[in-house]
Design a protein around this nucleic acid. Structure first.
Lengths: 239, 239
DNA sequence: CTAGAAACGTGATGTCCGTCACACAGGGTT
DNA sequence: AACCCTGTGTGACGGACATCACGTTTCTAG
């Protein structure tokens, strides 16, 4: 079997083992078979662009493996990263449903396996399989929820420090590290990218980290960050 | 027929004349009849709170008449208005679908007519009527789109002036005034509320309006605002 | 192993805007 | 009339942060 970009391709959704843990993929057999017939299993290298904001929707991209950066971009080049999509997420969904342009840009940050489905095929699929249609609604709710969180973080924070603290705590809970005394985080992003996630400048992020380290709130070991004082961090998010 | 709060109540969805122009309401007859059986037609005065962020989802609220302010609120009381919902919009939809808490607060700013449907009834309704399920997906896509716009405005703007200009231009296009040479806007919100829409302070909004007037870009006549120099306004949104 | 690039660290400087403070204007109520 | 109460206009001040500039470290590729 081919393995482009060092990926272990899952050939068929019918035999995919991670299916049950994924919001969209856990469909009844009939629907899954129909999906199997209209999907194109594809692979992308790191740095590939799945779609660009403003493009007319070509279809949906079910992310099977790897991570994808979702961002919006201003005319002057300033970029804001909305989220890093994980396997199981369906990308380009809302644009494909509504028919409006993609509202953001999707770019792989790992080698990725993706199931692509053309918009017309997908819409027909939804009409024929109401369970899938409900899954779509669930996915969209999830996305809307995430967007609301982003709005809250951007709009209601008083300082960049607050936003950074929120981001770090969020990362902790995503990795199941939240409960631990001293959570550890693998920082896969550059200061520049973190800045783009919280809507500030790279220099500010650098300075904020320096400050957190000086105050013994965090400590970095190579590319992992150790949260030494969780409550202090949480305190930053409320003030 | 009763007319609480001075409203002209539309008793039944089956005979509602505005149905066709509304994204969610334009359903096949069977679905509409089923919806009719589970909905509660209700009316609210101005200032009523339909639901509060953080509450467990009780159900959905189909807005038939009036306007509803959708906002999120920080622990310190700072508020951000996400949008003003218009008739035809379904409120509390994503929370009811996903089962997570309402992500924002909905408060009427006019006397409103609302069709309420309990969550369990609504979910059963969606299972039985796949057309409705697709409408829900469309509504959610719409909401997601709006949220992305909000994120863009909050996260990628360089100044409060830019955000205000964007807001004014958006209002123009909503009222079909965008094409006119000198669009007119009925300003129904206070400076305070406008500030909450663009995430700034009331004083800043006052100063920005004063500046726009001094520069002859806008002009106010009572509660209507006349855009005298649309291109200058548009210029503020790009710089 | 070395060159070049990419990422990070840090100072100096300016500015936008939040905050406080108070004055004023209009609309309702008693 | 006198009174509130809400909304608006405006000055003074300071802090957070963007920007520019440049040095240093780490990574990557030839």
């Amino acid at each position: 079997m081919l393995s482009p970009y060092g990926l272990d391709i899952v050939e068929s959704c019918l035999t995919c083992k991670m299916r049950v843990e994924r919001l969209f993929c856990d469909l009844p057999n009939a629907a899954l078979q129909a999906f199997e017939n209209i999907k194109y299993a594809t692979a992308y290298p790191k740095g590939a662009v799945l779609f660009v904001e403003g493009q007319a929707p070509r279809g949906i991209f079910v992310l099977c493996k790897g991570k994808v950066k979702l961002s919006i971009c201003a005319s002057d080049g300033k970029t804001l990263i909305l989220k890093i999509a994980e396997p199981g997420e369906v990308l380009g969904l809302s644009a494909s449903v509504s028919g409006k342009a993609y509202e953001l840009t999707a770019e792989t940050i790992d080698p990725c396996q993706v199931n692509f489905v053309k918009r017309e095929d997908f819409l027909r699929f939804l009409r024929d399989h109401s369970e899938a249609c409900f899954k779509v609604a669930e996915q969209l709710s999830e996305k809307y929820n995430a967007a609301c969180h982003e709005v809250r973080s951007l709009g209601l924070s008083h300082s960049a420090a607050e936003k950074l603290a929120k981001l770090l705590l969020e990362w902790c809970s995503k990795n199941g590290e939240a409960a631990k005394q001293e959570p550890r985080l693998k920082i896969a992003l550059t200061h520049e990218e973190i800045a783009q996630m919280i809507g500030t400048s790279r220099e500010t992020v650098t300075r904020l980290f320096a400050d957190l380290k000086k105050r013994q709130i965090v400590q970095s070991k190579g590319s992992t960050l150790i949260i030494r004082n969780k409550s202090a961090l949480r305190h930053l998010t409320v003030s």
